[in-house]
Each structure stands twice: as structure tokens, then as C-alpha cells.
């Protein structure tokens, strides 16, 4: 179980981005973290994975725990070793490495090197397309294939918790559906706990057990998927399913202003 408790994050010692962020990711579940651009979703994931430090960001208050053990003080490699693996926004495959070398790099912290061959096969089982491309330079893969590879690297690391940052980014709707069904499958078959950040609330909630909605550096709403789906505000602003037709921009602004005081 991953706990984020009242975390404050600052970049460059002055830019306060997370302002008392709290959430819980229970073992074996899929949790969706939703929110508009700039809400601080990526920053939350980087705070968990320790990648913040490479961007001059810092957790200045609160704490993050994995199974009761504080990890916000660790550096990125230690956190990967402890079992948290982040698939970064924008896929970030190693462009000049072959698909298979990318997968091997994903397994970098694994101690059981002899199982790596069979785990590569496992990735090919989830993403059969990658097997046909295994000797191809990753930079030449299509966006969808690169996303598969990015998640494949995550499988190779055998993490307890997999953090996915906008896996739907820039992909065609059909492919988004396919990738999310595979994410669900990984969660089921490998027992991997998953925290998925998404703009595309519809698809994220379709596989999640629980959802958090963040605005402006903190959580403004959370609940089971059913509860979120039945909530009027969520339907309107995140799922685009307003019952009373489109609201004007002014109303949305006032909504945001109201939420800020929560």
C-alpha cells in the first residue's frame, strides 16, 4: 500500500506546485488520478518515484510511504529497487536502443537475472506486436508501439506499484481502449498495484477501482468509480456528459474558484 500524506512540493525552491496532496493506493488495486492540465499530476508521480530531484524539485512537507516505510527521502534508483516503477509521460523510450534492449534496461534493478529471458516473453505475450519489432530501433516505432514498449519496460521491472503517466497521450481511441484493457490484465495477472494518471477520465475510470480528482495541487474529490461516475460535477467537467447541456466558461471558472477553497 502506497500512502501520500499531505505532501507539499516545490520546484526551484520557490514554485509551490503540490499544496497538501494526500491519497492512498491500496494493494492490488487500480487507482486513477484525474485532473486538468497543470493540476500537478505528473509532479505527484515524480514525487513518488523520486524523479523530482533531477528537476530541482523537492518534497518540502508531508511524507510518502510504501508499506509503512518512508520513501520520499530516497533517490530514484532506491525507490525502483523498493518496487515502484514510473512509466513517464511521453513514453520516453530509448530511441537508439532496440526494442529488446529497452526491455532489458527496464529490468536493470532485477536481481534474478536468469528470469529475464522468460519475462521478455511475457511482455511479448501482452504485446505480441513488440515481438515482431524486437530488433527495431525504438525511435522508429509508432506512438502506440512506443507506449506498449514503455509499459513493457514496467513489466520487466516487476514492480509492486506501477505508476503510469497518461498512457493514452496522442493515441487513437481504439488503441487507447486496447492499451487500457492490457493494463487491467497486467493488474489481474501479475497482481501489480497501479496508479494511473489520465486526462481521459472515461477510459481511466473504466478500469479503475477508485478515483481521485486533483485541481491546483491538491485533491478536490475522491471516491469509488461508481460514486464518481454518478457525481454531477464529475460528469460535467471530466466526462463531458453534462445533463443540462454545455455550461459557459464563466460557470466553469466559478466552479474552480469554489473548489480552490475546499
Amino acid at each position: 500500500m502506497l500512502t501520500i500524506n499531505n505532501v507539499e512540493v516545490m520546484y526551484d525552491k520557490v514554485i509551490l506546485v503540490l499544496k497538501g496532496m494526500s491519497m492512498v493506493v491500496p494493494k492490488g488495486k487500480i487507482v486513477a488520478l484525474l485532473g486538468s492540465n497543470g493540476a500537478g499530476k505528473t509532479t505527484t508521480l515524480k514525487a513518488i518515484s523520486g524523479l523530482l530531484k533531477s528537476e530541482n524539485g523537492e518534497v518540502t512537507d508531508g511524507f510518502i510511504e510504501l508499506y509503512g516505510e518512508r520513501i520520499d527521502v530516497n533517490d530514484a534508483e532506491t525507490i525502483v529497487k523498493k518496487g515502484i516503477f514510473q512509466c513517464m509521460e511521453g513514453r520516453r523510450v530509448f530511441k537508439h536502443l532496440s526494442v529488446e534492449d529497452n526491455l532489458i534496461a527496464g529490468a536493470h534493478t532485477r536481481k534474478d537475472r536468469k528470469n529475464i529471458k522468460s519475462d521478455i516473453q511475457k511482455v511479448y505475450h501482452y504485446f505480441p506486436k513488440l515481438e515482431m519489432l524486437k530488433h527495431r530501433q525504438a525511435g522508429y516505432l509508432s506512438g502506440g508501439e512506443q507506449q506498449m514498449l514503455a509499459i513493457g519496460r514496467g513489466i520487466m521491472a516487476k514492480p509492486k506499484v506501477l505508476l503510469l503517466d497518461e498512457p493514452s497521450l496522442g493515441l487513437a481511441p481504439l488503441l487507447v481502449k486496447e492499451i487500457f484493457s492490457i493494463i487491467k490484465k497486467i493488474n489481474k495477472e501479475e497482481g501489480t498495484t497501479i496508479l494511473v494518471v489520465e486526462q481521459n477520465a472515461n477510459v481511466a475510470l473504466s478500469i479503475a477501482d477508485y478515483g481521485y480528482i486533483m485541481e491546483n495541487g491538491r485533491i478536490v474529490m475522491d471516491g469509488t468509480v461508481d460514486r464518481l461516475l454518478s457525481n454531477q460535477d464529475v460528469r460535467e467537467f471530466y466526462l463531458g456528459m453534462g445533463d443540462k447541456g454545455r455550461k459557459s466558461y464563466k460557470d466553469i471558472k466559478s466552479y474552480k474558484r469554489r473548489k480552490r477553497w475546499l
Binding site: 530514484a76 534508483e77 523510450v93 534496461a105
Partner: peptide, 8 residues
């Protein structure tokens, strides 16, 4: 940075 995210 991506390398760091692999635990390298």
C-alpha cells in the same frame, strides 16, 4: 531522466 526512472 528516463534511465533514472529505470533505476539506473
Amino acid at each position: 531522466q528516463a534511465a533514472m526512472s529505470m533505476g539506473i
